[in-house]
Write a protein that binds this DNA or RNA. Sequence first.
DNA 1: CGCGAGCTTGATGCCGATCAATGCATGTGG
DNA 2: CCACATGCATTGATCGGCATCAAGCTCGCG
Lengths: 253, 253
Amino acid sequence: MLGRGARANDVVESVMKKYPIPLACSNCALRDLFLPVGLSRGDMDEIDQLVTTRRSVKRGEVLFHAGDPFASLFAVRSGFFKTQVTAPDGRDQVTGFQMAGELLGLDGIGQQQHHCDAIALEDSQVCEIPYVRLDEVSRKVAVMQQHLHKILSREIVRDQNVMMMLGSMRAEARVAAFLLNLIQRLQARGLSASTILLHMTREEIGSYLGLKLETISRAFSRFHQEGLLKVKQRDIQVLDEAGLHRLLNEKPC
Amino acid sequence: MLGRGARANDVVESVMKKYPIPLACSNCALRDLFLPVGLSRGDMDEIDQLVTTRRSVKRGEVLFHAGDPFASLFAVRSGFFKTQVTAPDGRDQVTGFQMAGELLGLDGIGQQQHHCDAIALEDSQVCEIPYVRLDEVSRKVAVMQQHLHKILSREIVRDQNVMMMLGSMRAEARVAAFLLNLIQRLQARGLSASTILLHMTREEIGSYLGLKLETISRAFSRFHQEGLLKVKQRDIQVLDEAGLHRLLNEKPC
DNA sequence: CGCGAGCTTGATGCCGATCAATGCATGTGG
DNA sequence: CCACATGCATTGATCGGCATCAAGCTCGCG
């Protein structure tokens, strides 16, 4: 894919299953999404030690389970994941969807064990970042430490925004917010602003939004007939982004 | 109200604005709640540099606003706070309640500006921890760095648990979960397991739980007549903790 | 004492859950 | 290639939980 030259990589080569691509973060295409800007050459050398392994995860496969001992974070390199927690009554609830350039496992640091399941929704690749290494590098490279704090803090902000959505928005507003969030993240990756391919089922969206799958379906249908979207199974064409934005401000509920 | 003996209190009183009391964390009564265990004497010296100011915040007063530039975290030393965010439509939603031994402002690190309002529900005291200092100390004291990561991670876990509650629990189960959470935090501070003094209104509880104040009131009444609680305004006596636990597992919704 | 903020309780209505039937794509084996 | 199964999505009918609206109540406080 982006298989660049391979000086020191022969060593690495043998260790991993078989990835001719260098693990070095310094020339990762997603570098800007994971790493702070303004790193010196020396810093970069440190950071290139972060990722030890790259792993393929097939669609439907579990990257880690809630309760598993925590040892590493995972950076999504390609593909798509969901995270879910299990309620005391046994039902699952999706807590997030992660695409390339996002981190998995942040919730495991506190108790040193994972708090959610992480499951691939498509065939995916992740880079494994042993937490002890991240700790070391963070201590040596101040800007990396700050960056890690920012990532953790932003995850808190993200969760609080979801809390707000779940606590105070009506069904259609939630679906609109969900779509707008997807659009925004796709745009940040330079991808189409108007065409979305959903990697998850209606049921998974519903679980994330605190709604039932029928409600998601109805919302899509409604948006369709109002001319906001073109919906065809999992292909969504956004026709009127401003219209979706307007829905967020609906008072009731 | 609970005017206790006033040995040191007179001192505290007089100073509030300029502090003859040692700010030193090393002999703070809440030390175990904020700091990692197993600190060396040298580490403690570093950590004692963390807190620069102690501040009183009167009931109803705002510690910081959403949008304010972020410079410090605040450790609640005494009293009680709520945090709230404002939805795009202008309504507020409570995102958390913080008691002595908990941190405020974690959500500001990411964007370097506060993401929520923090408002005192009682006359309170906070210790201000300039973020730049925390950064420095974290780099010097490895165990402090790890501790900070844990605190951030646990906040993520906390938020995800709230998301689960909002997304999949019925009204009474949410109220039960809320009470059980309060009990647990009070116990962690060595306080009564069965007597709770609510520092917030029904409306604030409702906002936090994604419900209306009438629903909170009805839930309390119901619990009362089922013998789970004794409710008298803001005094709650928990009579049957196991009974509350049972509510969490209710299937529907 | 009387005011007002906060709380309780009841009556009604609506949003989204639930139940159920059908449609539609993909895949599998005969 | 078709028959059939399976998983997912759509759509309709009905139901129930919580919001909403409304009226009194409690208590602290000027």
